[in-house]
């Protein structure tokens, strides 16, 4: 593969929704390439005969489920105290459709 190049990084910035400065791009490219090289160590191990494993929680012997009973854990006003911007009981965000709001 798995050549980790500037285009890979650009694509990742988009997928991760993280904008990077030029300086960061340089550093991340270098460091991430090192890490990707390191994790490719798994190529050494042959897993062709390993079935897709069962769900991890089953492997951890934890398959009990409780009933899904809704209850009011978090009142709206408590949740909204951390909202960066709000109008009444709603979170305010910048306009999604350009020209739709004069503010």
């Amino acid at each position: 593969m798995k050549n980790f190049n500037p285009n890979t990084l650009k694509e990742l910035e988009k997928l991760c929704r993280i904008e990077c400065s030029e300086e960061e791009e340089k550093e991340f490219l270098d460091k991430l390439a090192q890490i990707v090289h390191f994790i490719e160590m798994l190529d050494e191990i042959d897993t062709t005969n390993v079935q897709n494993p069962p769900h991890l929680l089953a492997e951890f012997q934890q398959t009990k489920y409780r009933k899904d009973i809704p209850n009011a854990n978090l009142p709206t006003e408590k949740f909204l105290q951390n909202a960066p911007d709000k109008i009444g009981d709603m979170i305010k965000i910048p306009p999604v459709i350009q020209g739709s709001e004069d503010a």
Partner: peptide
């Protein structure tokens, strides 16, 4: 940031 990017990479 690096770990989010790496995690996204291995899932892409």
């Amino acid at each position: 940031k690096k770990r989010i990017m790496l995690g996204t990479y291995v899932l892409s």
